[in-house]
Design a protein around this nucleic acid. Structure first.
Lengths: 212, 212
DNA sequence: TCGGAAATTTTCGTATTTGAAAATTTTCGT
DNA sequence: ACGAAAATTTTCAAATACGAAAATTTCCGA
């Protein structure tokens, strides 16, 4: 059991401090969030996010992780350098798991190009009851879902819910309040792609803040 | 896509703490390192690693990152829980008996909104040989692919091909010539979403305005 | 350009994290 | 079982991170 093999360390010498703050800021601005929005979504205070973005402090691990969740990106994306981010080809491996439990769904951000506009996720739908309206998703743009396994009910505000079985897909305006409910015994698994909002100014308000 | 939950992290702190400490310990022991070894390799003190492993504190982000490098693993490995790994394993119960190889790709356009900008397809890849360059796809925008079953090789002009297994996904600039080749014995099935270039006719009106 | 509101940064007291060294536990040869 | 060395945990003062609120800057409409 005690292995004698040592794993190779890709030694990069003393590298510059991780570009954590700059990346967080870029993701936040690209998705049209204010510090306040991100603070609410991540559970980290405005002051702390501001300081991290500006390199005034480097942040605790839990803090950075919460922020990544609030941004809906993988922690590895936060670490990436600008050069890496310019890649125009990104592969996401099945086992490269970063679970983002939201309380309603589990979602797993998949590979995405930082320069691009498509947001791929794998989501696991557990709930068999329709969530509170306040927890329904709204984000400007459109969304495609493909049911990998199980079945779901796709609810949209003011519409009759649609039942989607494994292999079915749907495309809809994600600006309409929507929610997924598991319609199979086992949790449903879906692959989802949504358009990423370019900038806050283009919309006039944060796409992630719901109106009561 | 991100949910719009008002608060992702409730004050009551119901979320399990990340299994950071346990994972670090597991990786360290599995690779046969002592705390002293890991301290030297990572640049983090013995005391700090000990406390993190035992959950006495949760560690700064830089600290955890250094430890991950010292262990030679990705930060995402540190976050992973056993449960996460299982959940991300895609089980395919669907039989492929209904597949009838007919050509290069079988192309099944999925539901898409006439006014939208996303193009979803299910494709069945039969060919095991790289098609003629003239038959490769080119279309401005970007594309996401998710492998439902089987495996493919994703070829892009001037780049090394990438192999994608079931459950893997990739996102790339579709303006570069590309093609899919089946890399599994059975035909591979993939779900693909690409951005659609707006037609002239569609320009000038909001693509997301829809009538009920 | 002005004024108010929104967004961001800074201040400051409290809480947590860090590493050297001391204390404790475990490992191992005899 | 014993003792010594190795491995790990704990102690503790200094350093750093945290959030609420205050201070400042930025953003827009009039």
């Amino acid at each position: 059991m005690p292995s004698t093999s040592r794993k190779q360390i890709p030694e990069d010498g003393q590298r510059d401090p991780l570009p954590v703050g700059a990346n967080i800021r870029r993701f936040r601005v690209e998705s049209g969030m204010t510090l306040k929005d991100l603070a609410e979504r991540s559970g980290v205070s405005i002051a702390t996010i501001s300081k991290i973005e500006n390199g005034k402090n480097s942040g605790g691990f839990e803090t950075i992780y919460k922020i990544a969740r609030g941004l809906g990106v993988l922690v590895t994306e936060i670490i990436k350098s600008e050069r890496d981010g310019r890649q125009n080809f990104v592969v996401h491996r099945r086992d490269d798991t970063d679970l983002h439990p939201t309380g309603i769904y589990d979602y797993f951000p998949q590979a995405f190009r930082q320069a691009g506009s498509l947001n791929p996720y794998v989501m696991v739908i557990h709930t068999h009851t329709v969530p509170d309206k306040r927890d329904w998703s709204v984000h400007s743009g459109e969304e495609v879902v493909f049911v990998i396994s199980g079945a779901i009910e796709l609810h949209r505000e003011g519409r009759a819910p649609a039942r989607l079985e494994a292999g079915d897909s749907a495309c809809f305006d994600s600006g309409i309040r929507h929610a997924f409910v598991c319609a199979s015994k086992a949790p449903a698994r879906i692959f989802s792609v949504s358009t990423r909002v370019a900038s806050r100014r283009a919309i006039g308000r944060s796409p992630f803040v719901q109106s009561p």
